[in-house]
């Protein structure tokens, strides 16, 4: 008895995707984790030798690394918190307004709100870092003066206490289009009859939103949360364009992405260290994986149970 041959056309359809994805994505991810267990040999720095979890030990305890790691993790959580507290609620609000039956010129508003999401970090960084918040142009200063809040004039990006929150808000400005789009899509999917029925029963606009729309878009809330989490813990570009690789002032805006870049690639006088870089990537991998698992097991599963 011969085994049935696996149909050729299925292989032809799948092979290119599987090969490119495996070679350029899965293999580097695994190999990078492997590299985090290696370090340049003491005798011959050209050769890397297996050192077990020593790099992780260094990262967590060495005075050159540990404070930076702690700072980056803490800052990254603050960065994420600002997105969760500002970007996603405001994105939901805008989506709700955009999909309201009363709204005119939906396409125009949608494009306007989505516009910053299409811009490159370089442009966003320049707009906020060098134009609006720059004392040279003084646009933010003029704005605060006009609305009578002159006390708020200060170098928002230059002070360690405010730089991180300010940059997080700039990032919110840029990416609000994504939750806005995803929430809009979910809200449009809710049947009008359901809402009409609630209205007839005397529900207020707020009641309709909170008791009908929100529970129905809960899956999207989950998706937006996990996408924000992954995106934030992988962020790099905006901080790099505005504050440079050193994520100043005094590392106040240093997040895992910038810490990873500096360690791996080197910056100014500091030489690059690929295996330590891989170790930081390993920590980022663990954080992101934990977040994804919490989402899949804790959130998504519970949702499907409710549905049936």
């Amino acid at each position: 008895m011969t085994r049935k041959r696996f149909p050729t056309h299925i292989i032809v359809f799948l092979a290119p995707a599987v090969i490119i994805y495996t070679v350029f994505m899965i293999y580097p991810l695994i190999d990078s984790l492997r590299l985090s267990l290696y370090a340049p040999s003491a005798e011959n720095p050209q050769v890397e030798e297996f050192v077990g979890f020593k790099n992780y030990e260094t990262l967590f305890t060495d005075p050159n690394y540990a404070p930076r790691l702690q700072g980056a993790v803490k800052n990254n959580f603050i960065f994420f918190a600002v997105h969760m507290l500002v970007q996603n609620p405001v994105g939901l609000l805008l989506a709700t307004l955009l999909t309201s039956q009363l709204t005119r010129w939906r396409g125009v508003f949608r494009t306007a709100l989505f516009l910053p999401t299409m811009l490159s970090f370089v442009l966003v960084g320049f707009i906020w870092g060098n134009i609006i918040l720059s004392p040279l142009w003084g646009i933010a200063d003029d704005f605060f003066r006009t609305i009578g809040l002159g006390d708020l004039i200060q170098p928002w990006l230059g002070k360690p206490e405010t730089a991180l929150i300010t940059l997080s808000l700039v990032s919110v400005w840029q990416f609000i289009g994504i939750p806005m789009m995803l929430f809009s899509a979910a809200l449009i999917g809710i049947s009008d009859e359901l809402i009409e029925a609630a209205r007839v029963d005397g529900a207020t606009a707020w009641g309709v939103f909170w008791y009908i729309k929100f529970p129905l878009i809960l899956p999207t809330v989950g998706i937006v949360t996990i996408l924000t989490f992954v995106g934030n813990f992988n962020a790099f570009d905006l901080i790099y364009t505005v504050q440079g690789g050193l994520a100043g002032p005094n590392f106040a805006t240093d997040i895992l992405g910038t810490f990873f870049y500096r360690t791996f690639f080197g910056f100014q006088l500091q030489a690059g260290n690929p295996t330590m870089g891989a170790t930081i990537a390993g920590v980022m991998f663990l954080i992101i994986l934990t977040g994804v698992l919490v989402y899949l097991v804790g959130f998504q599963r519970r949702l499907t149970r409710v549905e049936y």
Partner: peptide, 21 residues
């Protein structure tokens, strides 16, 4: 499932190895 791992795990985390390759 294998092909969807990459939706959640960013390719940037493999940069060290990717650059070498």
């Amino acid at each position: 499932l294998y092909l969807s791992i990459g939706i959640m795990i960013p390719i940037r985390l493999g940069t060290v190895s990717l650059l070498r390759m």
